[in-house]
């Protein structure tokens, strides 16, 4: 956990965030709680709290737009385009005639404006100029839209010089925290089932094979949570945190699925929705597999392994 913010103040904020994600309109609840003020004041620590809880509740919100706007140094109520699934490139490309867009956006895009980064420039455009459809695939209720199309230069509402890497790192931190929260939820589902499911005259939580799977899951989640906490204090560590969180989520899903066995394979049990959300989030802004490989290449090229924060 980030160590930059007073623990008591932060615990109170976290409690408010938990309640916000229990309400049908999380965005309104987060706004009432002063989430963007917390983001401005605390930075990574606020991101860590909100997205861990969003993951734990398997909820959706448009808070990622606020994170990206802050990282790009922009203000307003715009949606911000993300790279498409499987990519970390800027979602926009600038040509002589205007901007072409291929990416993802939250439901905030329905409010009217979208910020699209292309090269070193953030272009604000009217959403009406673009084709927008809900993202289908494995997790259609993730609250994401596919955004495509071209916008002529005369329709640009604003252009600002930015660095996409800043936005990408902030997104990686948020997604890492969300994956940690999702993993904690999956572990909780598996734990409850292990305690209540009786076979051979005892709860299956009494079998060491089950216990050790869940213990290994806990270790992976705590490692990922610690990595996310370090990245909350130093955004340059965000790709490592995202890789760890993706790995932890996949290990958690594997073990939780096995412990939940038959019931976890049904559509009526909540588990599959967590699994599918985790698979989607792992593929956004760099999957664990890709980021780990890239980290390895970078280490081999420089001769240096990443260090964590100093004590």
């Amino acid at each position: 956990m980030s160590r930059t913010v007073d623990a008591e103040e932060r615990a109170a904020f976290a409690e408010g965030v938990r309640q916000a994600f229990g309400r049908p309109d999380a965005d309104t609840a987060l706004a009432e709680l002063g989430w963007t003020d917390a983001l401005a004041e605390w930075g990574g620590a606020a991101i860590e709290t909100v997205f861990t809880e969003q993951g734990r509740a398997r909820a959706t919100s448009t808070a990622l737009d606020d994170v990206l706007l802050a990282a790009l140094g922009l203000t307003g109520q715009h949606a911000v385009a993300l790279s498409p699934v499987g990519s970390r490139e800027t979602p926009g490309r600038l040509g002589p005639d205007g901007l072409s867009v291929a990416g993802l956006a939250s439901s905030r895009i329905l409010g009217g404006t979208l910020v699209v980064v292309a090269g070193g420039v953030a272009v604000t455009v009217p959403a009406a100029a673009l084709s927008i459809r809900p993202l289908g695939g494995i997790d259609p209720d993730a609250g994401l839209m596919v955004v495509e199309g071209s916008v002529p230069r005369e329709d640009f509402l604003d252009e600002t010089d930015v660095a996409w890497t800043d936005a990408l790192a902030a997104a990686q931190l948020a997604l890492a925290c969300e994956l940690v929260g999702l993993s904690r939820s999956m572990l909780a589902l598996a734990r409850e089932h292990a305690l209540s499911r009786v076979q051979f005259d005892r709860p299956i939580s009494g079998f060491q094979a089950v216990r050790h799977k869940l213990a290994d899951t806990l270790v992976a989640i705590e490692g990922a949570a610690a990595g996310a906490g370090a990245a909350a204090d130093d955004l340059s560590l965000a790709p490592l945190a995202k890789a760890l969180a993706g790995k932890a989520a996949r290990l958690t899903a594997k073990h939780a699925q096995q412990v939940l066995a038959g019931i976890g394979f049904t559509a009526e049990h909540a588990f599959h929705r967590h699994l599918k959300r985790a698979m989607l989030l792992d593929e956004l802004a760099g999957s664990a597999r890709v980021l780990a490989h890239e980290l390895g290449e970078q280490i081999l090229a420089t001769g240096h392994a990443p260090v964590t924060l100093p004590l």
């Binding site: 990595g227 760890l244 780990a292 980290l295 390895g296 990443p306």
Partner: peptide
């Protein structure tokens, strides 16, 4: 002699271990 995948994985594990241990020191 070293593959990027295993190097990246080991470095990630070490990073997570040190982050966790750092929290424990505090």
């Amino acid at each position: 002699s070293l593959g990027a995948g295993p190097v990246g994985d080991a470095a990630l594990q070490l990073f997570a271990f040190r982050d966790r241990s750092r929290n424990t020191q505090y």
